[in-house]
């Protein structure tokens, strides 16, 4: 099962949606791993004929099924980073009315959303649907370094080595949740890490 029910949280924590087909002549879909299922859920021949689909499999085997949807353009990227230049190129020439669909991990959706916002679409107009990994992209508030794929709380900052607790406070601009030193008021007293949603 690729869908996960996130617990209710504070107002800065993103609430991911469910993709739906919207009117428009041009559609850009960026999907990662199990995000393929969300695309399969909404795909129609008419929609896919107007869609540029960028897919990052991350070891999953959805590629053939996605190609069978016959998107107008299909690109399989080995990673989000490798796909980034292409995403920017596509956005550079796009016109108002473009529909954007993001689906996969929070990290990928957050970063791709930033690219789309940078060219002037409001975040409220970008559709998202979470699928797959619930790991978080975390920013250390102290050293500013980003640690990817964080699954436990507290965790060790990959840059400065401090033990950080995982907040639900989220920055769209950084596409990251905030990590804060867990033992700041009692150095060395670091609780045993456990899963973020345990």
């Amino acid at each position: 099962m690729s869908k996960f029910e996130f617990p209710k949280s504070i107002a800065s924590r993103p609430v991911w949606g469910t993709l739906e087909v919207r009117p428009g002549e041009h559609h850009l879909m960026i999907a990662e791993a199990e995000g393929a299922e969300a695309i399969l859920d909404i795909a129609t021949p008419d929609l896919m004929a107007k869609t540029h689909l960028i897919y990052i499999p991350k070891g999953t085997d959805y590629v053939e099924r996605l190609q069978a949807l016959k998107p107008a353009q299909f690109y399989e990227g080995p990673s989000y980073e490798a796909s980034l230049q292409r995403i920017r190129r596509v956005l550079e020439d796009a016109h108002m009315g473009l529909q954007v669909y993001l689906t996969g991990s929070e990290s990928m959706m957050g970063q791709a959303m930033n690219e789309v916002m940078a060219v002037g679409l409001p975040h409220t107009a970008i559709q998202t649907e979470h699928r797959g990994s619930v790991a978080r992209r975390m920013q250390c508030v102290h050293c500013k370094g980003i640690t990817e794929d964080v699954e436990v709380d507290p965790f060790v900052c990959a840059h400065c080595g401090l033990n950080l607790f995982v907040r639900d406070h989220y920055s769209r601009r950084l596409a990251a949740y905030q990590g804060v030193r867990v033992d700041a008021e009692d150095h060395g007293n670091v609780p045993e890490p456990k899963g973020i949603y345990e």
């Binding site: 009117p23 108002m96 473009l98 679409l121 409001p122 409220t124 107009a125």
Partner: peptide, 10 residues
């Protein structure tokens, strides 16, 4: 604008 897929905020 809505029919062409323009975001409301624009």
């Amino acid at each position: 604008a809505a029919a062409e897929g323009w975001p409301e905020d624009c």
